Simulated scan of single mutants.
Amino acid sequence: MAKKEPSKFAKFLKSVLATVLIVVASVGATLFYYERYGGGIGGLGSLAAAPVEPPPAPLPAPIFTPLEPFTVTLRTETSSRILYVAVTLRVADEESRKVITSYMPEVRDRILRRLSEQRADYVQTPEGRSALVAALTKDVEAPYTPNPRGPVVTGVLFTAFVIQ
């Protein structure tokens, strides 16, 4: 008995079934991979529903306003010492920088008055410098006539600090 050769239809049907089997296996493997390693339950649906967080906004660049150095005589009961300080102000916004620049003589006067009140032995300690920073911040942030609002100072930085 001679074997019967498959018909063209049978060959076509086998090809279609093989293709469907390959596609089903591919989809199944993809869903398995996403569920296992993609972290989502339900395969691709959870990936599509996952919220996409926008990148964080860049932080604004700091605004620094350097001041000319100050030289002040610190007097005690028995002697006098010289304080040399270079100060840079960190301000919150451009408007505050403009106020400080516009009122620079008054800013320098306020700082000089505060520096001349210091005691040399106290201002050399970390607590003394911290207190001086707080006092200078308060003095510089006070309003300048005729402005109803003073500048916003976020930091007083000593770039030079010498007592002789």
Rank of each mutant, 00 (worst) to 15 (best):
residue 138 K to V: 07
residue 74 L to T: 01
residue 109 D to L: 13
residue 78 T to F: 11
residue 110 R to C: 05
residue 44 L to R: 08
residue 40 G to V: 15
residue 8 K to Q: 10
residue 143 P to N: 02
residue 159 T to G: 07
residue 98 K to Y: 07
residue 11 K to P: 02
residue 98 K to L: 11
residue 13 L to K: 11
residue 111 I to P: 00
residue 78 T to W: 09
residue 126 P to V: 03
residue 108 R to L: 13
residue 43 G to M: 04
residue 17 L to M: 11
residue 101 T to I: 09
residue 62 P to K: 03
residue 62 P to R: 04
residue 23 V to I: 12
residue 131 A to Y: 12
residue 27 V to W: 05
residue 137 T to P: 02
residue 86 A to V: 05
residue 123 V to E: 03
residue 156 V to S: 06
residue 29 A to G: 14
residue 49 A to P: 00
residue 90 R to V: 08
residue 98 K to D: 13
residue 164 Q to N: 13
residue 124 Q to P: 06
residue 134 A to L: 11
residue 155 G to Y: 04
residue 42 G to K: 04
residue 149 R to E: 14
residue 91 V to P: 00
residue 119 R to K: 15
residue 43 G to F: 05
residue 130 S to A: 15
residue 110 R to K: 06
residue 17 L to D: 06
residue 4 K to C: 03
residue 109 D to Y: 12
residue 42 G to I: 02
residue 120 A to C: 04
residue 51 P to V: 03
residue 115 L to V: 02
residue 34 Y to H: 11
residue 33 Y to A: 15
residue 79 S to P: 01
residue 24 V to A: 15
residue 34 Y to T: 12
residue 51 P to E: 05
residue 69 P to E: 03
residue 82 I to L: 15
residue 75 R to Q: 11
residue 36 R to D: 04
residue 34 Y to Q: 12
residue 127 E to M: 09
residue 129 R to L: 13
residue 4 K to V: 12
residue 24 V to P: 10
residue 12 F to E: 06
residue 85 V to L: 10
residue 122 Y to S: 11
residue 49 A to S: 10
residue 120 A to M: 03
residue 13 L to G: 10
residue 17 L to E: 08
residue 64 F to H: 11
residue 33 Y to V: 13
residue 93 D to Q: 05
residue 70 F to N: 04
residue 88 T to A: 07
residue 36 R to F: 07
residue 67 L to Y: 02
residue 163 I to Q: 02
residue 62 P to M: 03
residue 128 G to M: 01
residue 60 P to K: 07
residue 147 N to A: 13
residue 102 S to K: 14
residue 84 Y to N: 15
residue 83 L to S: 00
residue 145 T to D: 13
residue 46 S to N: 09
residue 129 R to G: 07
residue 133 V to R: 12
residue 47 L to C: 02
residue 11 K to W: 15
residue 92 A to H: 05
residue 113 R to K: 14
residue 80 S to E: 14
